[in-house]
Design a protein around this nucleic acid. Structure first.
Length: 937
RNA sequence: GCUGAAGUGGUGGAAUUGGUAGACACGUUGGACUUAAAAUCCAAUGGCCUGUAAGGCCGUGCGGGUUCAAGUCCCGCCUUCAGUACCA
């Protein structure tokens, strides 16, 4: 029987499922290892060959670790709440619960076909009430916590209340809203309950606040900053506008510094760390206050260059700045208002596209320089952003190019405070080579010293202090959507109240119309049964809301990243109904050892998950404050689209090489119609779509050759390759090997089905090597030296490759090994057995099949990884290339038994070497045993 | 603009600490088997020179440098991709 992969793979997939071969135990004498994939959104399109790339890599590693004697946790689940699932439901007009269920079933079927070693008994779905019960629970925990900057950790809100009762808030050093004012213990104790609640809300780690948010009318929801790309929504590409709304927010800014520090302790790709560092955007400098002349107002600015304070010649406020209205003089009022209105109209995108145009207006008001007390004109300009720092800057035109351009444009004075620097053409922003001058007490100082001195003097004046500023904003946590986790929150007198954890989950209500609204009301507002009864502790009909103990529930739902911020911990104890996870389970598994997923989550999921982990760590629920020790970003597999060229205005299509003779337009056609030499199947095309049924073709030597374009795999480009088709035609083992063979894991690469025959024929050769006709045949004869050499070379290489996640080269190594064994006519059991263990992480089905045929009744996954023995690699002689003065080269064959000195002597004694060296004294002879002999003249 | 990654045959890609560049595979060409096709197997395959062979020269984006020896290290450029962007 030839290699019948369909039968073999179906049999072993069934065997693994029935025997729960990959079930992980929460207790084991073996060391633990946790391999995690980023769980998928079950979208309607199903998987294409690009999706499983990371899963195959993690599966190889998980299977390898089992062979190495680890108790491996390798789970999988679905991120089934959120925009993608809901968008698909809206498109198909079906309820998201239904489409999600169907999509998950489809995903599962596709995943099973590829033969992953997932422990499906631990599956989680974020949209399942038994899961989101714990998402709600963590939300409540966050609500009941505040961040103490003294101890640098989150603490219980009761602690804060106790401090307020005893000392007021003047001694508290907490991360909180900017508008909290100071109060004493007496004042606190005199506040009403509602006043107390309002104040506490400003300290909680998740809080309700009216904030300016990114509103996307087409999607009918707000978006987080990381969900916006180039000013439009990441999903769908719709415009986003700024809008004030009352929203739940997560005080992630409290963790800014720890999120930065933690990066040094984890093995994640540098580009990913860089983008998180960038996103957090720490800058160190000073906060400086300027008094406004003839007003009581002060302007606070943040600057990274307090050393240039004597270079200030004007100030600029963002057009949205609160002070603009207050300080503008009557004479300037009209002009200022016109400008403010004009900028407000411009969308984020227009502002970004139009960076080069300099615009601004003078307010007529002046600030007072803290040291010189000279008047400083106050301008407004849209190059200053309301959302960063204080929304105001002290402009130092000689040291900052934007200030310089603004000053030049409006003919504002540009004083020079840098010694020996020409600023007639541009600003001078080189910190390192700065010597300050014209700056009173800062004269002659260099950058670092000047910064310190300036801050010291500002503090003495009470007009400034050293300050660190972060770009990271608190994350908006409300979505005006149906398909998400409901908040465990109801409102009494407008103040949010948490539902007691013992009554969770608060389940998503059934509603008929779940479509989002353009105006911003949440679809949950349409639910009839969506009120909270504080007596029965149940969700009840809205009609009862007039009852004294029935209150309205929160109408928003949580964003897509809620469930994904802790799911990795839930896998450790997924069926626990009493706790999010037991202490035993979390203490045993601790953290993810290897996490594989795409880099697109760098500033979303991966930042939020780190934040929640640190919070859970502060609360003592998890033993480590980084959830994933090592992370790898797999690259994307791209599609290779096929392009045909239609002669304009006709239904004739011209082959690629002749297209320049015509005026043509490009059309993409199904890649399934193209053979391995880029030739188009003309009959197939005619049947593919009606528009081609009477197409004519202009051919070159009877062939139509298509153009190729590498781009994202997508239905709209007709370049999607389905893994099911590959599994049916070549088998899952071939798919797995080929995806690895395509290139380095981290790299993006185009899919090309043509090349798959290479790895497929490797499997056929492997099969044939141990079969005589239809009969499985191996021998017990002692392996030869050559057999052992092939085997141990392979063990060494494959082990190194897996440890370095360089899976592509292992596949080549297997091919070489099998070719060598075929040449050696080796079907020795002593070789096959370890060889199968090496291959089994990559091609598990064929390995199991041959393993069983050898007579084992246990799964190959229980076998140990073979030990490498170097002695089998040693050759009796080796050819040494010798180079002399870079020009003359010859090889010398020497016995490997020789030691270093003997090789050296042999080289010197060699006739040709002596000729080369004639007349020259060699300075030294470098001999590296097993490597190359080097003669240095 | 800034940050990061990367440039190697017709193609995907190999190449421990600098040590015979192009492993392995696809594709292409020729051959064997076959009525034929598929499948399989064998051989050749970076470029150029020499009739073949032997051999030589040139070759890892470009220009320099270090070294007996550079795809690999150093300096200066160019190009591509990704992320980010008026961040004070």
């Amino acid at each position: 029987m030839s290699y019948d992969f369909n039968t073999i793979e179906a049999r072993w997939q069934k065997y693994w499922a029935e025997n729960e071969t990959f079930k992980a135990e929460n207790n084991s004498a073996k060391p633990k290892y946790y391999v995690l994939d980023m769980f998928p959104y079950p979208s309607g399109a199903g998987l294409h060959v690009g999706h499983p790339l990371g899963y195959i890599a993690s599966d190889i590693y998980a299977r390898y670790k089992r062979h190495k004697g680890f108790n491996v946790l390798h789970p999988q689940g679905y991120d089934s709440f959120g925009l993608p699932a809901e968008q698909y439901a809206i498109q198909t007009g079906q309820h998201p619960a239904l489409t999600t269920k169907e999509n998950i079933a489809r995903y599962r079927e596709q995943l099973d076909k590829i033969g992953f070693s997932f422990d499906w008994s631990r599956e989680v779905r974020t949209s399942d009430p038994t899961f989101y019960k714990w998402t709600q629970w963590i939300f409540i925990e966050l609500f009941n916590s505040w961040y103490d900057d003294n101890t640098n950790k989150a603490r219980k809100i009761e602690d804060l209340e106790a401090v307020f009762e005893a000392e007021g808030n003047t001694t508290v050093d907490a991360v909180c809203d900017e508008d909290v004012y100071e109060f004493t213990a007496e004042q606190w104790n005199g506040f009403s309950s509602k006043e107390k609640q309002e104040i506490l809300l400003k300290y909680r780690l998740t809080y309700l606040a009216e904030t300016e948010v990114n509103w996307c009318p087409q999607l009918g929801t707000v978006l987080a900053n990381d969900e916006i790309v180039n000013g439009v929504s990441e999903r769908g590409g719709y415009p986003v506008i700024r809008k004030k709304m009352t929203q739940w927010s997560m005080r992630i800014s409290a963790y800014a510094q720890r999120l930065l520090d933690g990066l040094n302790t984890i093995d994640w790709p540098q580009p990913l760390k860089d983008s998180q560092i960038n996103w957090i955007g720490k800058s160190v400098g000073a906060s400086v206050t300027f008094n406004v002349k003839d007003h009581d107002e002060i302007i606070e600015v943040f600057t990274t260059r307090p050393d240039t304070i004597f270079g200030v010649s004007f100030m600029t406020l963002a057009p949205e700045h609160d002070l603009v209205q207050k300080i503008t003089t009557a004479a300037q009022k009209e002009e200022v208002e016109a400008y403010v209105e004009a900028t407000a109209k411009r969308s984020e995108r227009e502002r970004m596209a139009d960076v080069k145009t300099i615009s601004g207006v003078f307010t007529g008001a002046y600030a007072e320089h803290p040291f010189t007390k000279t008047p400083v004109p106050i301008w407004i300009g849209d190059y200053v952003l309301a959302g960063y720092g204080t929304g105001a800057v002290m402009a130092v035109p000689c040291g900052d190019q934007r200030d310089y351009d603004f000053a030049k444009h409006f003919e504002i004075e540009i004083p020079n405070i840098f010694e020996g620097v020409d600023i007639s053409e541009e600003a001078f922003s080189d910190k390192e080579n700065t010597i300050i001058t014209n700056s009173d007490f800062l004269d002659g100082l260099k950058y670092k010293k000047a910064v310190k001195t300036a801050i010291y003097e500002l503090e003495k004046l009470g007009q400034g202090e050293g300050k660190t500023n972060y770009r990271l904003r608190d994350a908006v946590f409300s979505r005006q959507r149906y398909w998400g986790e409901p908040f465990p929150v109801y409102y009494i007198d407008g103040m949010p109240q948490m539902i007691d954890a013992k009554y969770l989950p608060v389940e998503l209500p059934e509603i008929e119309k779940y479509l989002p609204t353009e105006t911003g009301e949440s679809p949950l507002g349409r639910a009839d049964v969506w009120a909270w009864d504080t007596v029965s502790n149940k969700v009840v009909s809205n009609a009862l809301i007039d009852d004294i103990n029935v209150f309205p529930l929160e109408l928003n739902t949580m964003p897509g990243w809620a469930g994904s911020s802790y799911y990795f911990n839930r896998y450790m104890d997924p069926n626990n109904n009493n706790e999010v996870f037991s202490k035993d389970a979390i203490d045993y598994w601790k953290e993810v050892d290897l996490y594989i997923g795409g880099s697109e989550h760098a500033t979303g999921h991966l930042l939020y998950a780190r934040f929640w982990q640190k919070f859970l760590f502060d609360q003592g629920y998890v033993p480590v404050d980084e959830f994933a020790k090592k992370l790898i970003n797999q690259g994307m597999i791209l599609g290779t689209s096929a392009i045909i060229y239609r002669v304009s205005g006709t239904n004739a299509y011209v082959t690629k090489d002749l297209k320049d003779q015509y005026e043509t337009e490009e059309l993409r056609v199904d890649v399934g119609l193209i053979n391995s030499s880029d030739e188009l199947n003309l009959e197939g095309l005619k049947q593919w779509q009606p528009q081609f049924s009477d197409a004519e073709f202009i051919l070159d030597s009877g062939k139509y050759i298509v153009g190729r374009e590498v781009e994202k795999m997508s239905k709209r480009w007709f370049n999607v390759v389905n893994p099911d088709d590959i599994c049916n035609n070549y088998g899952a083992d071939t798919l797995r090997l080929y995806e690895m063979f395509l290139g380095p894991l981290e790299q993006s690469k185009p899919w090309n089905t043509a090349g798959i025959t290479g790895v497929h024929s490797f499997l056929k050769k492997l099969w044939k090597l141990y079969h005589n006709g239809d009969v499985f045949e191996i021998t017990d004869v002692e392996p030869t030296k050559d057999n052992l050499k092939t085997l141990h070379k392979t063990i060494k290489k494959v082990e190194d490759d897996i440890e370095n996640f360089s899976f592509n080269t292992s596949v080549s190594t297997f091919m070489i090994a099998v070719n060598e064994l075929i040449a050696q006519k080796c079907n020795s059991k002593a070789i096959l057995e370890p060889l199968l263990v090496l291959i089994s992480p990559y091609a598990p089905h064929i390995a199991e099949e041959l393993w069983q045929k050898m007579g084992y009744d246990m799964s190959i996954s229980t076998a140990s990884f073979p030990l490498f023995n170097e002695k089998h690699l040693v050759e009796s002689t080796k050819q040494y290339p010798i180079s002399f003065n870079g020009k003359m080269r010859f090889t010398l064959e020497l016995s490997l038994d020789l030691n270093k000195d003997e090789i050296e002597a042999a080289v010197m004694a060699h006739e040709k070497t002596q000729q080369q060296l004639a007349g020259r004294e060699p300075k030294k002879v470098i001999v590296v045993p097993g490597k190359i002999v080097n003669v240095v003249g």
